[in-house]
Amino acid sequence: MKHPLTEREIRAIVNGREVRARVPVRKSLVDWLREDQGLTGSHVGCEHGVCGACSVVLDGAVVRGCLTLAVQADGARIETIEGATESGRIGRLQEAFYQRAALQCGFCTPGMLLVAAELLARNPNPSRDEIREALSGNLCRCTGYHAIVDAVEAAKSGSR
């Protein structure tokens, strides 16, 4: 990819499956996942990095899908809410979000879940303040956050 081009061939592992595709280089990762891979669980809320609705996991770390280009997924592993759901990796969190009513419209929820999962992987026993800080880049306009913090607390290991 030494010569500048407007379209590129990429190969990526998306939710565990290898995908080959031609992508316009200006297309964002979240647009590509949503429009070309049918993975509409990641949402688009601002396209300038502020809301976190577009969160996806790139090589093991949550990133903004709107601030990453699809072409940059070449050679990478991508996981979206769909993949995380199917693998069962975030099952506890999902159950806790459901039980605790930690969502209303649900537009922020996939992003919240992926960020919360990364927090718990790094810090299995976060305090409420630590949870709030970790989620501070994800906008939820509906819940007021309290229930989300409760749900993450409920899902952390050790608690039941």
Binding site: T40, G41, E82, Q99, A101, L103, C105, G106
Partner: peptide, 21 residues
């Protein structure tokens, strides 16, 4: 009671207008 309808949403299976093609 938790909202039955949110099971889909936590699984990323919501269908918002931008998801319609």
């Amino acid at each position: 009671l938790p909202r039955a309808g949110t099971r889909r949403l936590v699984a990323g299976r919501g269908r918002y207008v931008d998801d319609i093609v």
